[in-house]
Amino acid sequence: MSFFKKLKDKFAGNAEAEESTEKYKEGLAKTRIGFTSKINDLVAKYRKVDEDFFEELEEILLQADVGFETVIELMDDLRFEVQRKNVKDTSNVQSVISEKLVEIYEAGEAEINEINFVEGLTVILMVGVNGVGKTTTIGKLAHRFKNEGKTVMLAAGDTFRAGAIEQLDVWGKRVGVDVIKQSEGSDPAAVMYDAVRSAKSRGVDVLICDTAGRLQNKVNLMNELQKVHRVISREIPGAPHEVLLALDATTGQNAMLQAQTFKEVTDVTGIVLTKLDGTAKGGIVLAIRNKLKIPVKFVGLGEKMDDLQPFDAQKYVYGLFAEGLDKEQQEEDEKADK
């Protein structure tokens, strides 16, 4: 059943229905149709818009790790909009909310989730704290680029963690791309130098550089990362063309600090949100996008080679609410059963 039909059915028998549907159509035209109608659908299905609704919306967002500040800002915005437009009709209130929700992520900017490929060699540097899935993501990226017909090379820049080089090596074999490596404990900057050199001489299209996981408050390790970055840009002006920060979707508010610090040190250009196949939402990327303007470029959805997908903001934001609202509804039903 289409959304409009649903809406019409809903208002059938209501004297104001015709008028409000018209208004609603106008409102809808201004926003992105598919996503907005879905959210509207949800909102309409579950409840009327009152203070309770706002509170529940707030909780859904908080439980998705969006963060207090961003949530409060959004809620204030929503309340203000609703008041300003002085809309008493629920369907209109809903459309206001939908518009706002789309804006949380996109903040009026066009989406840039493509990898910035350049003529000749494109260098991608992968950074992040320990255990977020950098190496796995590199394997998946390599697979993806190779399928697109590009020649890919990997650089084993995690010379610190036991087994990290072997891990990347396994991925290299699995995907069928070369891995430039040195022994464990060697200088990561030296590995990068080697890798950039051989990538240039072999004429590959993409070089993806792994780095060791490091907590952002370790000054020395962040300095080391800066050096790695410097070595790459000295060899190829303008490189690395992409610095991707791997973020674990289960991470809470600390992700903001991670993004901030890594951005200062390596000028992060995009985020890969990993482990999104669990129950965590990684809502903090909304706050990061708002505050630091770093877009999410890919999401990791599993352990297989093709479990990496380009980020779809609308789908993502929708997911935040859909599941949240579903859950609330379930809980309410359970309560009602008792």
Binding site: T250, T251, G252, K281
Partner: peptide
């Protein structure tokens, strides 16, 4: 458990 885990820690 990673000490940086957010709201989902409870579910896990």
């Amino acid at each position: 458990v990673d000490s940086m885990t957010g709201q989902d820690a409870v579910n896990v």
